[in-house]
Design a protein around this nucleic acid. Structure first.
Length: 101
DNA sequence: AAAGTGACGTTGG
DNA sequence: ACCAACGCCACTT
């Protein structure tokens, strides 16, 4: 699978994250690991940074529930408005974390 | 081909 | 609970 195809897989998956739920970068990488032969949370971060504009990027956070550097404001507001359980400044991963069936 | 890079993850202080 | 230091790994130069 070419890098471009992988990008499409990642974006497709992010589009399937339901409102009010989130996935960590690592969880996205894990979910596509078998299909893609890749498993790097850092790569997901890079992909979201460059190609995340058209998908619900705010539903992808760090494993600790932190939001992307430089977009904390925007992300927090969007998450709040769609009912993602927050715990102070971070997402309550125990409640919000989702993974595909 | 080799070195640089980073919306990460984990661990130890 | 917060942060720095590492580890990591696939992309980019």
């Amino acid at each position: 699978m070419t890098p471009q195809e992988y990008v499409e897989q990642v974006l497709s998956l992010v589009e399937r994250i339901p409102e009010g739920r989130v996935m960590s970068y690592g969880a996205v990488a894990d979910a596509l690991a078998e299909r893609s032969g890749r498993n790097s949370s850092r790569l997901i971060g890079a992909i979201m940074a460059r190609h995340g504009g058209g998908v619900p990027w705010h539903r992808v956070v760090t494993s600790a529930g932190r939001m992307p550097p430089g977009h904390e404001q925007e992300a927090r507001q969007r998450l709040l408005s769609e009912g993602v359980p927050l715990k102070g400044e971070h997402v309550d991963m125990a409640l919000a974390s989702w993974q595909p069936a």
